[in-house]
């Protein structure tokens, strides 16, 4: 038996919004310690890894490890029927082929129960190596979203260069070019830790997709090392994270 109750559906909506652009279907791996998800997009360019600890939930019970195959678009449709301040309970019996979602209004005078068909997904899990990132940058999530949006109007490719002076985002296309540089601020909303400078090139449309997670967190952490995938991490309150990995463009 798996049962988890969140006091606010808004958080679940934000999490699903952050996943559904990259993944149409995915498996939630539920265990006693919490809920995990790991999946690549269809083209194997990016990977999403989500972790939510059991103490995020008002009530959490998971008697044995369970994999719930979900169609995220269907889940989005169900979540649209709920109000953000509803409490939500998700429930699935062992070996069940359905997920139950119950929404309870804040005033507790309305309950709505939904059943969502579970999918049998053959999902491959990848081992993500421990990486000592040469550059780690924290910045406001809204700033990162704005930069990704602004650069993608210029070019399909975005170059991210990180040095001790700051982080620079560049795009160069037919209509012209753009460079946006952020330096460390004294008020601490932008911080830059650099062991060695790194410059890598990425597909802007994936970066844009990652910024769907912006409503989850005020801050985003960007980690880079030479010739390895970029890591963009959004914390989920104090209870977990969504991490996006993006393969760099490589010189032919």
């Amino acid at each position: 038996m798996f049962e988890a109750r969140l006091s606010s559906t808004a958080l679940l909506k934000k999490i699903v919004d952050a996943l559904k652009e990259i993944l149409h279907q995915s498996t939630l791996d539920c265990s006693d310690s919490g809920i995990q998800l790991q999946a690549m997009d269809n083209s194997h360019v990016s990977l999403v890894s989500m972790s939510l600890r059991s103490d995020c939930f008002e009530k959490y019970r998971c008697d044995r490890n369970l994999s719930l195959g979900l169609d995220l678009r269907s889940l989005t449709k169900v979540l649209k029927c709920a109000s953000g301040d509803d409490a939500v309970t998700i429930k699935s019996a062992d070996k069940a082929d359905k997920l139950q979602l119950s929404f309870e209004s804040a005033s507790m005078d309305r309950t709505a129960d939904y059943e969502l068909r579970l999918l049998n997904l053959d999902q491959e899990h990848l081992a993500i190596p421990e990486t000592d990132y040469a550059c780690v940058v924290h910045m406001p999530a809204t700033e990162f979203a704005r930069i990704c949006r602004d650069l993608s109007t210029f070019s399909e490719s975005v170059v991210i260069a990180c040095t001790k002076d700051g982080i620079k985002f560049s795009a160069n296309g037919e209509m012209g070019s753009v460079n946006i540089k952020l330096s460390e601020t004294s008020k601490g909303d932008v911080s830059v830790q650099v062991e060695e400078p790194v410059t890598l090139s990425f597909a802007g449309r994936y970066l844009n997709t990652f910024t769907r997670a912006t409503p989850l967190s005020e801050k985003v952490k960007i980690s880079m090392a030479p010739e390895v995938p970029l890591l963009v991490e959004y914390p989920i309150e104090d209870y977990g994270y969504i991490r996006y990995y993006l393969a760099p463009k490589v010189d032919e």
């Binding site: 690549m40 194997h44 360019v45 990016s46 990977l47 491959e124 899990h125 990848l126 081992a127 993500i128 190596p129 490719s157 090139s201 597909a203 390895v228 995938p229 990995y245 393969a247 760099p248 463009k249 490589v250 010189d251 032919e252």
Partner: peptide, 14 residues
């Protein structure tokens, strides 16, 4: 000339 890298070149199946 650059081409898009593949994550499977970096992360191996468990």
């Amino acid at each position: 000339v650059t081409s898009q890298g593949n994550l499977k070149d970096f992360f191996k199946p468990k």
